[in-house]
Amino acid sequence: MTEAAVLPSGALADPPQAPTLLYLDGITVTFDGFRALDSLSLILAPGELRAVIGPNGAGKTTMMDVITGKTRPDAGRALFRDEHDLTRLDEAAIAELGIGRKFQKPTVFETQTVWDNVLLALAGDRRARRAFRFGETAEERERIEQVLTTVRLLEHRHRLAGGLSHGQKQWLEIAMLLAQDPELLLVDEPVAGMTDAETEQTAELLVAINRDHSVIVVEHDMHFVRALGCKVTCLHEGRVLAEGSIDRVSNDPRVIEVYLGR
C-alpha cells in the first residue's frame, strides 16, 4: 500500500499547485524483504537546488536509481515535468528526457581521452546509425572547450581519463554532465575524497550550474551542504524524516538523533 492510496480519493488526482519538475509519489523498493525505500515522496520545483542527506542505508542512492531507471520500484510513481512516468522508462530514455547523473564512485571512460569523454556526453543524436562520424564539428569543439575550461581540465584534454587523479575524475564527470546539458542533474557525493579547497570550488561550481539547471545533490559533508545554501531533505529508513532550510533540518531533534549526533 502506498501512502497515496490511503489519501482521500481526490488528493492524488489534483495536479500539484506550482509547476513541478520531479514528483516522486509513494515510491517503495524492496530488496529481499528489506525496504530500501518506504513510500518515499518528494517534490522538486524547476530550477531548484536540493541537498539530500541521511545516514548510510537511508535510501539516497536507491532514490537516484529509481529516478534514473536503474531500479524499478515495487510501487509508486515518479513523474518528470508532470508528464513522463520515469518508472516505465529505461535508463537511456530517461537520460534523453534530460536527467543526468553523477555516480558516487567516479565513473569515466578510463581508456579514452578527457576530450573524448566529454564528446561522448555531448548532447546530440544518440542513435547508432547516426554515429558513423569522424572528429567533431566546430560548434561541438567550442562547447567541449568551454565545458573543460569550466572544470579546469582543458590542459589535460589529451590525457587518458584513467590517468587522472580522483578529484579530477570527479570534475570530469561533472564536465560530462554539463556537456550532456540535462534539465535535472543528480549528483551523488561529489566531494567524497576531495580536499577542503576542492570541496569549496565544487560547491561554487554546483551553485553556478544551478543557474541553468535543477540539481539534486546527495552528500554527507555538512559544511558542503551549508555552502550550497539550499533546501535540504533528510532521508531515514527510506522515508523523508525532515525537509526545509539547513538550519531547520539540522536543528530537528529527530535528525540530530539518527544522523547528526550530539
Binding site: E96, G100, T107, F109, L119, A128, R133
Partner: peptide, 22 residues
C-alpha cells in the same frame, strides 16, 4: 568513428553509457 568511441565506452562501462542516453 564516433560509433567506435561509444563502443569502447560500452566495453569499459556499459551502464554509465546508458545514463548518458545511449
Amino acid at each position: 568513428s564516433r560509433f567506435g568511441k561509444v563502443l569502447i565506452a560500452v566495453r569499459d562501462a556499459e551502464s554509465r553509457v546508458r545514463f548518458l542516453g545511449y
